[in-house]
Design a protein around this nucleic acid. Sequence first.
DNA 1: CTTGATTTGTGAACGGTTTCACAAGGGGCC
DNA 2: GGCCCCTTGTGAAACCGTTCACAAATCAAG
Lengths: 219, 219
Amino acid sequence: MTKKISESTVGRLSLYLRVLVDLEARGVATVSSEELARRGGTTAAQVRKDLSFFGTFGKRGLGYVVGELVAELRSILGLERSWRVALVGAGRIGAALYGYQDFRRQGFFIREVFDSDPQKVGQRWDGLEVRSDRELEDVLRQGGIEIVIVAVPADAAQRVVDRVVQAGVRGILNFAPTQLRVPPGVALKNVNMAVEMEGLSYALSNGGGTRRAASAERR
Amino acid sequence: MTKKISESTVGRLSLYLRVLVDLEARGVATVSSEELARRGGTTAAQVRKDLSFFGTFGKRGLGYVVGELVAELRSILGLERSWRVALVGAGRIGAALYGYQDFRRQGFFIREVFDSDPQKVGQRWDGLEVRSDRELEDVLRQGGIEIVIVAVPADAAQRVVDRVVQAGVRGILNFAPTQLRVPPGVALKNVNMAVEMEGLSYALSNGGGTRRAASAERR
DNA sequence: CTTGATTTGTGAACGGTTTCACAAGGGGCC
DNA sequence: GGCCCCTTGTGAAACCGTTCACAAATCAAG
């Protein structure tokens, strides 16, 4: 079953899912790979290939039944259940993520928030108390936290990750602009806004106006 | 000069730059591709190949002179100058980005903030007035804005992008969880936290514990 | 039931990126 | 100055992801 699916394929599945949920809400019954590709920013062949890794969900001559495919993708991505998430770092980025509705909507619930700043510890965020990072390991374990979002400064990030991994967490979403090391078996994703911004700077400085489209996407 | 450099290469250059700046601050004089790779989360061969696209910056037998390479990378990435940036969407994410020091540090200055909510329009953020989105095109043009950060809800994002492109902006960093269309010649980068999160969900649900490391990286 | 119009699923071709491996160059020491 | 060690720069090979192209399947209409 585990054939070795590329990260880009998985990323696109998320994108397709978003499009499909939207279509579903608008009462659309079926989509072709063509249409799904257009809305998802890719090609029809790519859509079909991506899906083909997981099964055969379409109906030839018709396309995909929206509701069915939504269910399939949810299942593939592990979104049928909810996930227990903790946020480490209660700064501006942490606060923004805490309020980010899209996480909740897909079943990611932030159950704990940590910070090392005594000023922040004890604050209440929608009734959830910001805890001291000293309690980190204990609370992660007791709370059965499965995913941790790291939103601390770059120079503190590796320490946080080490402790979090130590506490048994195996999924980490990192917002600190630094490259982290995790042991095998731990999934790590980086969101590095500075890198993206510099990619824009590069595109505008170089190829910017010349020749082909410098239009990039995804990340 | 414009050979067609892959986005992954450019992304890694940003990462190298970060590592190098850090080394520089610590007074390190030279680095080998080996060391740079380790800290940047890649391989020595990759580092050398990436750099080789742009010139030959190393000294055989020695490595790279940190200060020199920093300067080269800054130049390649277009970071020797500063960039005029506007933020559209003054919600939680917008606020977090506005305060994000790393942007400023690399020369990205947020000069304008827009929102469509009358409650927000007129607010002052560090002395900068939040403007109505009705003024969008005019202010972007008059302010010579080169890059726009889109931090509005998904269903408003495409409209914002269309207007912003219309106003001559050619670099867009999108935080809305939706796939946007831009004409050729406009650089677009997406930061989609929900997609990353779902990637974690996938990794944990499937390969999670079995077999090889499910440890992913970069984005 | 047959025909025609669609649209999927997929092996094969292609293209691009990463890894490998090694010759070439540079620094430092004796 | 000569020798040795180290590390780069880079063609070639390996690998991986994307695109192509078409046979197979389904639906609708007559």
